[in-house]
Structures are given as structure tokens and as C-alpha cells.
Nucleic acid binder design. Structure first.
Lengths: 203, 203, 203, 203
DNA sequence: TATGAATGAGTCTTCATTCAT
DNA sequence: TATGAATGAAGACTCATTCAT
């Protein structure tokens, strides 16, 4: 079988298992049975269990990044809020459609080699830094209230994560993602933007 | 040795290990070596590995509850914001002083018996429900903006969790907890309260 | 407490447990809890687990011997058959009233130190030798058919053991012990005695 | 190595150990060392310790059944006694050639999961029921004396078991199995058959 | 005598990884 | 590439026995 396809096949099956049962409760046996391959074959494609989990995580991060478009502030562009909303909905969609990956992202894999948690941690830190940058910029433009932008950025990330966590828990398949995104954005903007700005974005 | 003391001694050592390496990467051998006791002694005090972890978690939840005082709204009481601030600072203090427990609380123990994740999940759900209740009440009094209080509650929890996560990551021992708490409260109140209220609480 | 009494108390409780669950499935913990004593106390009265089991077995063998009266063949004595019947009923009574001991006797304790099985084995071998002696004597008197008395002796023992086994299995508390004894004696005498003798004992 | 062979190899080694030391005193370590395999390999072929013991027992029961031919009473067939003798010799041969299994059969494995003793118990009960049936039939034909056939059946089984026990104990490798079988059959038939029949079968 | 906390050797079992075919 | 039998380190847990009080 095509080497590239086989990789995907294994990854896909492993993602479901990791997402459903977590890293530790998922055995190599589970993975090869789900993928319908022999034990040795698995090691032909992945160095070890850690490697496949890591790749899954990497791919997820890439997918998330792909869903995020840098906000276009050139005149004539759509409102920043609308663009942010699109980004947020995109990410929420990606993750809720992909529960296996979501739970990996949220719960990580406590207790794997140090380096592992760090990878996840890194992702969040970069994300925070990006948001922080935007907020700082906003402050200079008088749009963002004069507070610690680092904490504001973390707060923003935390809000989204916790809502996703809740979605994961409740297993409710039909949810108004745009509505949720709007709400989160609303809270966040009221929370961090200057009064005038807030009023403006409100409509 | 005094039975009560020995329990504490074991719990304390286990907490550090669980916090540092996670549930799975911490073996009974690790725990007994850290506590300086024999294998059998461990099982004299705890039914099994799961039991000690569970107890640790239970104790933490209890401690958190103890740090939270119901907001006194009777005339003459301190401002609600000040009381909330105290509560939040209390919790942040407890958790940052207790990093092992904190990471247990944040990361949980993915892949333990179902019932386990549920326990943690339960804690957060109750917390969310409580906050949600307060917000709904606030809406009736015209203090809270007319949005989905569930999501607002989750957002509030998520903000705090993510900041804690960040504190855990950065390992910076000296942090301005009251400042952070004030900031979080600030974002949250601007985010969910009505304009007038926000302005009022500001000052 | 009186040292002698305490021994008995421990032995009695242990007998029930060993009989019910077997040697291996009965723990020291079980025994001391049943006897209501502390762990250390047990070792004050018995060297180790093996020792108490051994003592139980010894006592049983003694009790069995006590129930067996040598057959009185002097003129004017009751018929040999009646005396044998009494002996057999006595043993059956002792053992069925004392299920714990019975199961120890029948099942022994496979896998205990070599010396243990040998003890039990010894008991049966002596018993067989005794019976064999009587049968050989009987042969000389023309009462017993001319066959291998060793095998006949074993057969006699086996008959009784298997019936006891069955009683143990069926747990039927009310059984006609004299009837069973008569039947077994009947089969055995027809089986090994000469025709004339058989007819005589038959009545 | 061929999967089928490896199973056999492990089974064979385990049989010897179980037979020699009993279930409890035989550890997995003993088995794998005897078989010259790695720990994990054992669990590739057997679910657990209980499973291999159970399989050994099952196989033995099957082998015993295979050695027993239903007695052919059609005219022209060999005498019933000769056929019974063949059956008995067959079973004695099988078991004495296979001491490990024999001791499992005789001693069972007291204290294993309930279901285990029951399995053995079941085997003997079925055997007893079969013999009992034949005896009852014999009674109707006037061949068997009018006594409790259940007890007679148990007596027959017990005779054989005790003799086997004795063979196991004495470890005498050269024994006159046909002679022993004849003797046992002799005692049994004199014991349970009517006088006339006995005389007939005698010769 | 009596206690019961402490011990640690020993047991079963799992599972990621290797390697000969 | 693919297979799957084999490996063995490592894990959780038990329990008879000891010993300081």
C-alpha cells in the first residue's frame, strides 16, 4: 500500500483512540487493531508510541494555524470584529468536528516525557504572545484599555478553552458555534477594549 | 510513628510527585522511596494508587471551598468586588503555594478510571453552575448584561485556569497575586456587567 | 486470658476458615479477625501459618483414632459387624459434624511444604496398614477371600472417603449416617469376605 | 517456533510443576523457566495462570473419556466384565503414565476460584451419575443387589481413586495394572452384584 | 502477654519494542 | 514492506512475619 496513505490510515485511527481513551489507556495493540495492520508494521511508520502522538499534535497545531487569518485592517476590509469572529468560529469548528484532537489539545498528555508537555505549552505560549502583541498594538491605538496585556491574552485563551472543555463534556453535537463565538468575543472585547471602542463594536 | 502523621507524610510526598510527573509517570516505588517507607506500609494507609490520588484531589477541592466566602450583600458590607477579589486572591494563593496540587487540578489525570475524570469534571461543573446562578441573579437586578450566563461563567473559570497554567509554566515564584486577581476581575466585570455597573465598580 | 483457652479459641476459628476456604485462601488476617486478637498475638501461640494448620490436622487424627475401638472378638462380644458399624458411624459422625476438619482431611493442603502432604499421606498409610492386617488375619481364618489385602484395604478407605466427599459437596445436613455406614460395610464385606462369611454376616 | 508446539511445550512443563508442587506453589516464574521462555511469551499463549491449569484439567478429562468405551452388551460381544476391565486398565494406564495430571485430578486445587473446584467436582458427579445409572439398570435386570446405587457408585469411584493415590505416593514405577484392575473389579462386583451374578462373572 | 505498625520478598500481569522470517 | 512471535523491564499489589512499645 502507498506509504503515504498507510501513515494517514494509522494516524487517523490512533487519533480517535487517543482522543477517546487518552494517551496511556491507548495501547499499541489498540492502534494496530484499529488500523488493521501488524505490530511490526506500526514501527515501520513511527519510531514509537510517543512519536505518533507527537505527530498528531503537530498536525493539529498546523490545522489550527491554517484556520486563522491575520486580521486585515486596511481600509475597505471587513470589520475587525467580523474577521476575528470568523477566525474563532473556524477554530471552534475544526475542534468540535474533531473531538479526538480536541481532547488531546485540552488535556495534553500529562506525564509523558517532559518535552511533550512543553510542546503543548509552547503552542499556547506562542498563541498568547501573538494575542498579547495585538493587544499592545491596540493599546497604542487607544482601542485597548491600559492593563497588563499578557493577562488579558491568557484570559482570552482560557475562555475559549474552557468553553471547548464544556462542549467536550456535554457531548452535545448540535451547538450554535457562531453564537458561542460571538458571545466569547463580546465578553472579551467588553473586557479589554476601551469604553468607546466597545460601544462601537457593539453595533 | 503517629498514624495521622504518617498519612500526611505519604500524602505530601505523593502530591509533589503527582504534581511534577503526573499520575501515570509516578509509580508506587517513587512514592515509597520519597516517603522513605516500605512498600507494604503504603498499602497500610491507602487502598491503592488511585485512592491516594483521589484523596489528594478531594482535599484540594475542600481547601478551595474553604477559601471561598459567600459574598455578603447586606448593607454596610464591603463592596462585592472587594469580597470577590479576596476570594480570588485566596484561591490563587492556595494554588500557587501548592504547585503539586495545582497541576493535578489543571491537568487532571487523563485516562484514569472513568469515574476519576468525572470527579474533576464535576467540580468544574458545579463551580460553573454556581457562577452562572450569580450571573442570572445579577441579570434580574440589571447588573449583568443580557447574554448567555452559562458561557460567561465558563469564560470566568477559563480565565483563571489559564492564568494559573501560565504561572505553573513560568515557575516565577514572586508574583503579584492581588494585582493579577484585580486584573482578571476587571476583565470579567467589564466583560459581563452592564455599562453602568462597570463604571460604578471601577473607580 | 488463659493461655490454653486462647489457643483453643484461635484453633477453632482457624478450623472453620481453613475448612471453608482452604489453606491458601485463608490469611492470617482472616484468622486474627475471626479470633478477635492482634496480629502479634497469633505468633505468640503459633510459630507460623503452617503450624496452626498442622496442629489442626494432628488433632483431627487424634479424634478419629479416639472414635475407633478395636474389634472385640472374645466370645460373648457383640458381632464384629456391629462393632465395625459402630466405628464407622462414629467416624462419619465426627467428620460430618465437623465439616471444616473434614475438608482439610479430604483435600489436604496441596502445595504446602512437602512434609505436609506426607503427614496426611502417613495417616492414610497407617490406616491402610491396619485394615490390611485385619484382612490378612481374616484370610488365615478363612473369612476373607484370597486376594491382595493391600488393595482391598485401600478400596475400603477410598469408599468411605468418596462418600464423605459427596456429603461435603451436597451440603445436605440431614443424612442417615447409620444407613450409609451399613451400606458401605455391606459392599465391603460382600466384596472381600468369602461367600460363606458374607452369607453369615448378612443375616 | 510453531505456535502449536510452543503451547504443548508450555503445557507439558506446567503439568509437571503443577503435579509436583500443586497449583499455588507453582509460580509463573517456575513455569517459564522450565519452559525456557520469556515472561511475556507465557501470556501470549495463556490468559493467566488459572487458564493454563484449567486447560490442563480439561485435557485430562477428555483423555479419560476417550479411554472409556461404552460396554457392548449385544450377543456375541465380549463379556461385560472383560470390557469393564479394559476400560479400567485404560484409565489406570493413562493416569499412572501421567503422574502430574493424576495428582491434579486427585487433589484438585483447593482454594482456587469457586468455579474451579466445581469443575472437578462436576466431573466426579457426572461419573458417579453414569455408574449409578448402570447399576440401577442392573437392578432391574436382577444383576445388582437391591441397595442404594448412589452410594455404590461413589464407593466404586473411591476405590479407584484411593488406589491411584497410593500408586502416586509409592512412586513404584512397575506395577501390575491389569492385576490391580481385576482385583478392584472383583471387589466391586462381589460388593454390588447379586450372588448368582457374582458367581457367574467369577469363573 | 498483647499490640499493630512496619517490612520486603514474592506474585501476577501488562505492554512497548525488537527481530527473524 | 509486512508480519507476529518473542522479549523482559516495570508495574501494582499481597501477605506472612517481625519487633518496638
Amino acid at each position: 500500500m502507498d506509504s503515504r496513505l498507510r501513515r494517514k490510515q494509522i494516524l487517523k485511527n490512533a487519533a480517535v483512540l487517543f482522543g477517546q481513551y487518552g494517551y496511556h489507556a491507548t495501547s499499541i495493540t489498540d492502534i494496530i487493531e484499529a488500523a488493521g495492520i501488524a505490530r511490526g508494521t506500526f514501527y515501520l511508520y513511527f519510531h514509537n508510541k510517543r512519536a505518533i502522538f507527537e505527530e498528531l499534535l503537530d498536525r493539529l497545531v498546523v490545522q489550527i494555524r491554517e484556520r486563522i487569518r491575520v486580521v486585515d485592517v486596511s481600509p475597505g476590509a471587513r470589520s475587525a470584529k467580523a474577521q476575528l469572529q470568523d477566525n474563532l468560529v473556524g477554530v471552534l469548528e475544526l475542534l468540535t468536528e474533531n473531538r479526538p484532537l480536541l481532547s488531546i489539545l485540552l488535556e495534553g498528555a500529562v506525564g509523558l516525557d517532559k518535552g511533550f508537555d512543553e510542546k503543548l505549552s509552547d503552542f499556547y505560549q506562542r498563541l498568547a504572545a501573538t494575542i498579547e502583541g495585538s493587544l499592545t498594538l491596540g493599546q497604542k491605538m487607544g482601542l485597548v484599555r491600559d492593563r497588563d496585556t499578557r493577562i488579558a491574552a491568557l484570559a482570552g485563551i482560557g475562555m475559549v478553552k474552557e468553553v471547548l472543555h464544556s462542549l467536550l463534556r456535554n457531548d452535545s453535537r448540535v451547538v450554535d458555534l457562531p453564537g458561542i463565538a460571538a458571545q466569547l468575543l463580546d465578553i472579551f472585547s467588553y473586557g479589554v477594549l476601551t469604553n468607546d471602542t466597545t460601544i462601537m463594536t457593539q453595533k
